[in-house]
Amino acid sequence: MSADGTLPPAAGRGGFLASRTALAVVIAAYTVYTLAPFLWLATMSVRTTGEISADHYAWPRPFHWEQFRIAWVDSDFATYFWNSTVVVVAAVAVVTLVGAAAAHALARYRFRGNRIIYGVLFSSIIFPPQITLISLYQILVDYGLYNSLLGLTLVYVSLQLPLTVYLLEGFFARIPQDLFDAAKMDGYGDIEIFRRIVLPIGMPAIATTLILNFIQLWNEFLFAVVLITDPDKRTLPIGIRAFMGDHFQDIGMIAAGVMISVVPVILAYVFFSEKLIRGMTAGAVK
């Protein structure tokens, strides 16, 4: 044992390097696997459909940037983009605020029915949302909200709220009660405690739900296609779908439209990824 005293660390170092190399290879492979389709799409978005059918995988030469202008202006992607932005930003804002407040209430206040509400929320997460589609359609028609962006926003709020409350409740419940008691002793009331203690401490979790909800709704197709009929109220996913129907041959133009719709998602990841990772890895609030 003692004669080999120097060996174990050396072996340990070698093992460490080997495992690091293996990890790097796996990550590189995964990156290629996820990035390649995206790059392919990106190259197609600056090539004409004729060029694409000649060679699916060729490098763009020249770069047809005008495809973006055509998609944006001539093919109404500006309208779709604006509609998506309005609906998704409003829905995510409401879901985040209402969800955080509800999660705080469920996590922190003892009141009759607390666990029942929690149970109902939880059960609505495990049922597939499609089963509500027909009834939602009927309700929206009854209230004159069918085929309106407001109606779609409300539906999106109700779709994302349960999971948001559920995720945030789990996080908020782990904030020590002593912090709330300390803030009360420091003279703060319930709403101020929510604003100055719960929201800042819960920020990693809130950012996580924010980005998840944003991506989910930005890409949402099923409810939008059923509840919106007017071409000028289309969101991006139905806009792209309609585009495929109208100009099925125009692959290059569709690629440009998809690229436009992907940009906000990428930006969301760039701005929130750090908080997202912190939220996902946050074990407990210290």
């Binding site: 020590p176 002593d178 912090l179 008691d181 300390a182 803030a183 002793m185 203690i197 401490i201 609030v285 210290k286």
Partner: peptide
């Protein structure tokens, strides 16, 4: 009040 856990705002 001073708490056993200190309850400092993190």
């Amino acid at each position: 009040m001073v708490f056993q856990s200190y309850a400092l705002y993190p």
